[in-house]
Amino acid sequence: MSWFGRLMPSRIRTETRNKGNVPEGLWVKCSECAAVLYRAELARNLDVCPKCAHHRRINARTRLDHFLDAEPRHEIGAGVEPIDILRFRDSKKYKDRLSQAQRATGEKDALVVMQGCVEEMPVVACAFEFGFMGGSMGSVVGEKFVRAVDAAIDNAAPLICFSASGGARMQEALFSLFQMSKTSAALARLSRHRLPYVSVLTDPTMGGVSASLAMLGDLHVAEPGALIGFAGPRVIEQTVREKLPEGFQRAEFLVDHGAVDLIVDRREMRSRLGGVLAMMTGRAPKPKDPALEMLEEPA
């Protein structure tokens, strides 16, 4: 089990543990309500369980594909690749972990940045690939995030980031830690340009990512049930030596404690963010129904 997997409460662990046993078939079992779901239907429902609305983790490209208009799209920083500067080796070589993650995800590293539109409004959007070493932030993630900010500034466009990460990547040691200040500095610059930044916290957003770019939004939006926090629940449990309260560090808990603005269902993410961003950028509202608009149009 991955290091991050071991930090998670057993409830959400099931999903990945069972993955090995169940062949990639037509049917998927919901890890929350155990409903057996038709894979194609689940995909149409943006990987949200139609029975219990559990938000399954999705990969970065699928995420951006849901979120952005089909055209135009332009990927930023696609050529930025990780290097093993420290020749880091634990039970496995970092180099081997990287190539394994690259093969498994088809990504070069844990962040995908795309320039495109949401309901015809130009935006820059980034998404973390949790499948790539737990979405951990090393030099590549930091650099691509800064390029995303630069692109937003150059195009006077809002920035949206979907985070899903266990935190800083240990194999790049202090270089990883310094990506926290790097990304935060870029966001301060974006803020000086008065461009909106929406941070969407998805399951899970922890550690160095939560303590930098994910918590610096004009707007903090979370997906239902997402685990969000600084320290992992297991670390806290070991420190305070008591059982953690029900729902601790879940999206709803963060709303209650004032750290998150609102929880948005993935299926409404595009229209909700489109609407708020239009207000923040002084754009006209999107017509509610195109048919109605046509009726009102002067002949």
Partner: peptide, 12 residues
Amino acid sequence: RLTSYGRYRDTG
């Protein structure tokens, strides 16, 4: 200075 931290390869 802050944005210069990090080592990666850029294949363009």
